Simulated scan of single mutants.
Amino acid sequence: MAERKVINKYIPPDFDPAKIPRLRLGSNRQIKVRLMAPFSMRCETCGQWIGKGTKFNARKESIEGEKFHNIQIYRFYIRCQRCAAEITFKTDPENLNYEVEKGALRNFEPWREEKALNEEKQLTKEEEEENNPIKALENRTEQSRREMDIMDSLDEIRTLNARGERVAEADVREAIATRDEEKETQRRLAEEEEDERLAKLAFQSAGGRRIKRACEEDAIAREREIKLMAIAPQASQSSNTRVKVAVVSKAPMSQSTLGIKGIRVKTAAAADSTPTLAGMLGAYGSDDDDSE
């Protein structure tokens, strides 16, 4: 492959370029080109549908005597993919399109019909305005009203966009602060709910019953009640002991029996009573009775 990449080529000394015959080509000769179908069409011979953009090996030629404002018009030859029938179409620079000549039918294209209808409607409207000035005035009024509505809509859209763009920095900070406060409040509420749930679990018995918590006032009242209940039996017990000692001292008994009874009573009182002020007074009273 090295000999095909040389830069300089050998030219013999007796080389005369004038002796080389020139190739005479006709002006209407055909050129082989590769193209795509510019529109969808249907073959007239077999009915094969050919879509837009389908690639073909075609022949191209210039049409003699047909020009549009000095723009040359060209003709293309292609063959059907199914039956190999020849299909020809040419350029249409006047309508910026292509035109089928033979071999196929162009498929319906609604946008092309819409354009033609709009043009026809515009021509009809212009003719009516020329013949009827009142109709022309009505048309201009309607057009002005439509333009005003469009301008109002555009102004409203611009106002909304400008309002969204003119967001003050203070408003942004306030919104951020409000959002942070809401998050903090939600977090605090969640913590309180969690504490309440843990407290319920802590003050709950094994059987599933809930243990009520007593407030401080209830606790003080309960303690006072317990103290009163503890003092009342002691006072009643001391008074009963004094009565028993007095009855024993007044009974006509011997000294031995009195001593035994007194010892027995005192022993029972000492065993049953607790060393309180009421008990000590009761014991002192019994000694006075015995001395008499």
Rank of each mutant, 00 (worst) to 15 (best):
M1I: 10
E3C: 05
K5T: 06
K9E: 10
Y10L: 08
P13N: 05
D14V: 03
D16V: 06
A18K: 14
K19N: 05
P21T: 04
R22C: 01
R22T: 07
N28E: 14
Q30P: 03
Q30G: 01
I31S: 13
I31N: 11
I31H: 11
V33N: 00
M36V: 09
P38E: 01
F39W: 02
E44W: 03
T45A: 13
Q48V: 09
T54D: 13
F56Q: 02
A58G: 02
K60S: 05
E61W: 12
I63R: 00
E66D: 12
F68I: 08
N70F: 00
Y77G: 01
I78L: 04
R82Y: 11
A85H: 12
I87M: 01
K90W: 02
N95W: 00
L96C: 08
E120P: 00
E130V: 06
N132A: 01
E138G: 06
E138Y: 03
R140N: 08
I150F: 06
M151S: 10
R158P: 00
N161S: 11
A162Q: 07
A162L: 06
G164Q: 13
G164S: 12
A168I: 04
D171C: 01
D171G: 03
I176K: 09
I176F: 07
T178A: 15
R187E: 07
R187F: 03
E194F: 02
E196W: 04
L201W: 03
A202D: 06
Q204H: 04
A206V: 15
G207D: 14
R209A: 08
E216P: 04
A219S: 08
I226V: 15
I226M: 13
K227D: 08
K227W: 07
I231A: 07
N240T: 10
N240R: 14
T241F: 10
T241E: 15
R242T: 14
V245A: 08
T257S: 14
G259K: 10
I263K: 13
I263R: 08
D272L: 13
D272E: 12
T276K: 03
L281A: 11
A283V: 14
A283S: 09
G285Q: 09
S286Y: 03
D287A: 12
S291D: 13
E292R: 13
